[in-house]
Design a protein around this nucleic acid. Structure first.
Length: 643
DNA sequence: CTTAGGG
DNA sequence: CCCTAAG
C-alpha cells in the first residue's frame, strides 16, 4: 500500500455545518465541496475549509513515510475486522459514506434539487432506503437523516444468511434509489443500474472468479458492491470482487475461489489469513487501538453519524439496529470517547477498490499527481461529478496541492489548504483569487526546500536566527504541529532568507488584490536576530524612528514594515516589563508553551533599558535625539550614561 | 508616508 | 497582525 492510495481515496464531503469537532473523517482524504442548488459542485469557502483543517491535521500525518507501514497494517486488520460480526453493517456503512455527506446537504441547501446530484454523485445502491421505511425517524428534514440508512441496512440483514440478505437489502436499496431518482425531476438517472437487479446468485456458494467472463465478473461486481462497473479488466474485477466478498484487502489477483466470504486459494488450498482464528475480542481490541491512532474523527459510524446524531438519536437508531446491538454498543462507547482518542476509520469500500486499483495499475506509488493539481478547483469538481463507475475505472488522480511540512514536500488534499486571508465570502471571488492564495504554499516550499542563498548582505549574526516562536508559519494550530513533527528547527536564517522573496511576491500580490486586506500578511515569527536588529536599531536611531530602522537595519527583511517594527518593539517592551521587572521567578508568563522560545532575558534587558531611556527621554528628549550618543548610552548600561 | 495606539 | 487617526 502506498501513500498515494490514501490520498486518492477521496470522499466527497460537503461544506456547511458538518465540519466540527466530531465530524470524523475518513482516514483517507476528503475533498471539500459544496453542492450548489443546481447540483453543481463548487469549491469550499475558506471558512469551510478552515473548519475541517483540524481534522486534516491527522490526515496530513498519514502520508508521512513512517506511517505507511502502520497504515498498511491498519487496513489489513481492519479489513479483517469488517468481516466478522457486522460484515453487513460494515458494508452498508461504508457504502453510505458518500451518501451521508451528500444528504446532509439536503438540510443545508435546497433539499429537492439536490437529489439528482446526490444520485449522480454516488453509488446507486446508496440511495436512501429509509425514506420509505422510517419516515418517522431522523430522516425528516434535519441533516440527521442519513444515519438511519446504514443502520437499517445492517439491521435488516440477519447475519446468518449474509449473502442473500445482503442481496435483498441491496435490492431494496436499489429500488429505493431508483424511486428517488425518478421522483426527482432533473436527476441524471443512474445509468441502468437502477433498472435491473444484480444477479446475486452469481455470488452464491463457491465462486471461482477465474471462470467467469468479464460480463459475469461485472455482474458479480455489481452484486457485490451494489453498483455497476464499466471496468473490463478481469483481473481488476476479480480482485475487487474478491475483496468485496471477503472484505479483505489481501487478495491475490487470481487463482482464488471465494467461498463463504473467505478466500480459498485454488493452488495453495488454504485460506488466507482472515479474521478467522483471531479471537473476536482481540480483534475488537485491535480495532480500538487502531482507532486511536488515526484521527479525531472516527469512523465505525459514519462521520455524519457521530456528529449529527444526538445521543437520543443514536440510541434510537441503535435500537433500530436490533441485531447488531452489541457491536453498536461498543461503537457508541467509542464515539463517546472519540474526543480523546484518535481512532482509525474503516477503510471504505471505495478505498478498497482504489487500493486494488492502484495495485493493479502497477502503482509503485507516485505520491500523488503533481501535474493535475494545477487547476484543482475545476478539475476536481468535474471529477466529482463523474459517475462513480467511471471514476473508479479510471485512474483518477485527485487534486492535491503541494505543501511542505517539516521539510517534507507532500501533496495534501485540496481542502486542507490553509486559509491565508480573511474568509472569503463567495465562491466566485474564491476562484478568482486562487492564484494568489497559492502564494503561501510556494513560499513554504521555497522556504523549506531550498537551501539558503543570497542575502548575506549586512547580516550580522546568522547564528541565532531561530524563530522566537516555533510555530512560524501558518497560524492554524495543526500545520504548526505538522511542522514540529517534521522535527527540525531549521535555522531561521534559511527561513527568513527564502521567505523574503516569496513573501514579497505574496505581499505585493496581496496588496494589489482587492483592497481591505483580503489577505492577511503572512505571519512571520520574529527571529532572535531580528529582535536584535530591532533593539540595535532603536538604540541607534531612537524609538519612533521606525522607518529609519527599517531602512537601515532591516534592509534585508523586506517583509518587516516600520509598523511591524513598532509593534514588535511595543511587544518587546511589554515583555521586558512583564517578564523581567516583577522579578518573575524566571517563569515567563507564556510559560508552559513549549512552542514559544522566549526572548532571551539578555535582550529583554536591553529592551528594558532602552524602554526606560525612552520614557525618561520624554522629559529630556534632547539627550537621546542626538543619536550618536544615544546609541552608546543605550548600549552602555542605560541610565548611567544618561545626563 | 510615517507614527502612535487600539484592537 | 490589522486598522485608523493624526501629523
Amino acid at each position: 500500500m502506498e501513500v498515494d492510495t490514501l490520498q486518492d481515496a477521496q470522499e466527497t464531503k460537503n461544506g456547511g455545518n458538518d465540519f466540527k469537532e466530531n465530524g470524523s473523517l475518513d482516514p483517507v482524504v476528503y475533498q471539500l465541496v459544496r453542492v450548489e442548488g443546481d447540483g453543481t459542485l463548487v469549491p469550499p469557502t475558506e471558512d469551510e475549509v478552515l473548519q475541517i483543517e483540524q481534522f486534516l491535521d491527522d490526515k496530513v500525518d498519514l502520508p508521512s513515510i513512517d506511517d505507511v507501514g502502520n497504515v498498511e497494517d491498519f487496513f489489513t486488520n481492519d479489513c479483517m475486522l469488517l468481516k466478522e460480526p457486522d460484515f453487513e453493517e460494515g458494508y452498508s456503512e461504508l457504502e453510505t459514506n458518500g451518501e451521508i455527506h451528500t444528504q446532509q446537504f439536503d438540510a443545508d441547501l435546497e433539499v429537492d434539487r439536490l437529489k439528482p446530484s446526490v444520485d449522480s454523485l454516488d453509488i446507486p445502491s446508496k440511495c436512501t432506503v429509509d425514506h420509505d421505511h422510517k419516515p418517522d425517524k431522523l430522516n425528516t428534514e434535519q441533516g440527521d437523516n442519513n444515519i438511519v440508512h446504514q443502520d437499517n441496512a445492517s439491521t435488516e440483514t440477519p447475519k446468518s444468511t449474509v449473502l442473500n440478505d445482503s442481496c435483498s437489502a441491496e435490492k431494496e436499496k436499489t429500488d429505493a434509489c431508483s424511486r428517488s431518482v425518478n421522483n426527482s425531476s432533473t436527476g441524471p438517472s443512474v445509468s441502468g443500474v437502477t433498472s435491473s437487479v444484480p444477479d446475486f446468485s452469481i455470488l452464491r456458494g463457491e465462486v471461482c472468479l477465474d471462470n467467469l467472463t468479464i460480463r459475469e465478473l461485472q455482474e458479480a461486481f455489481r452484486a457485490t458492491f451494489g453498483r455497476e462497473t464499466t471496468v473490463k479488466d478481469k483481473l481488476w474485477l476479480k480482485r475487487r470482487i474478491t475483496m468485496g466478498l471477503t472484505n479483505s484487502c489481501d487478495v491475490q489477483s487470481s487463482g482464488c475461489v471465494v467461498k463463504d466470504y473467505k478466500i480459498v486459494c485454488k493452488d495453495a488450498k488454504h485460506e488466507l489469513p482472515t479474521i478467522e482464528g483471531i479471537p473476536k475480542a482481540e480483534v475488537e481490541a485491535t480495532s480500538l487501538v487502531r482507532y486511536q491512532v488515526l484521527g479525531p474523527g472516527n469512523e465505525r459510524d459514519t462521520p455524519s453519524c457521530s456528529y449529527y446524531r444526538s445521543e437520543d438519536q443514536q440510541r434510537s437508531s441503535n435500537r433500530l439496529k436490533g441485531v447488531s446491538t452489541d457491536n453498536d454498543e461498543s461503537e457508541g462507547t467509542l464515539q463517546d470517547e472519540q474526543g480523546a482518542a484518535k481512532r482509525l476509520r474503516k477503510p471504505t469500500k471505495r478505498y478498497i477498490e482504489e487500493l486494488s486499483d492502484t495495485e493493479t495499475l502497477g502503482s509503485t506509488g507516485k505520491l500523488s499527481s503533481p501535474g493535475k493539481m494545477a487547476a484543482h478547483g475545476e478539475v476536481l469538481l468535474r471529477q466529482r461529478v463523474t459517475p462513480l463507475q467511471e471514476v473508479d475505472s479510471l485512474s483518477i488522480t485527485y487534486p492535491t496541492r503541494k505543501d511542505t511540512f517539516g521539510g517534507f514536500s507532500v501533496h495534501v488534499p485540496y481542502a486542507s489548504r490553509m486559509r491565508r486571508g480573511r474568509p472569503r465570502r463567495n465562491f466566485i471571488s474564491f476562484l478568482d483569487d486562487d492564484p494568489p492564495v497559492e502564494c503561501p504554499e510556494v513560499q513554504m516550499a521555497v522556504e523549506t526546500m531550498s537551501g539558503k542563498d543570497g542575502e548575506h548582505v549586512n547580516h550580522v549574526n546568522s547564528a541565532v536566527e531561530v524563530p522566537l516562536m516555533k510555530n512560524t508559519e501558518k497560524k492554524g494550530g495543526h500545520i504548526e504541529t505538522a511542522e514540529k513533527k517534521g522535527g527540525h528547527i531549521e535555522t531561521a536564517d534559511n527561513k527568513e532568507i527564502h521567505s523574503i522573496e516569496a513573501d514579497d511576491i505574496c505581499r505585493s500580490d496581496a496588496k494589489t488584490k482587492t483592497k481591505r486586506g483580503f489577505k492577511r500578511k503572512h505571519h512571520r515569527a520574529w527571529t532572535l536576530s531580528e529582535v536584535l536588529k530591532l533593539v540595535d536599531g532603536v538604540a541607534q536611531f531612537g524609538p519612533g524612528k521606525w522607518s529609519e530602522i527599517r531602512r537601515l537595519s532591516f534592509a534585508s527583511y523586506s517583509y518587516r514594515t516600520s509598523v511591524d517594527l513598532k509593534d514588535k518593539w511595543r511587544n518587546l517592551i511589554r515583555a521586558s516589563q512583564t517578564q523581567l521587572s516583577p522579578e518573575n521567578d524566571g517563569v515567563c508568563p507564556r510559560k508552559s508553551n513549549p512552542s514559544i522560545i522566549p526572548v532571551p532575558p539578555a535582550i529583554l534587558l536591553r529592551v528594558k533599558e532602552l524602554a526606560e531611556l525612552q520614557s525618561q527621554a520624554g522629559n529630556l528628549a534632547a539627550a537621546i535625539k542626538f543619536s550618536g550618543q544615544s546609541s552608546k548610552v543605550a548600549q552602555g548600561r542605560g541610565s548611567s550614561g544618561f545626563l
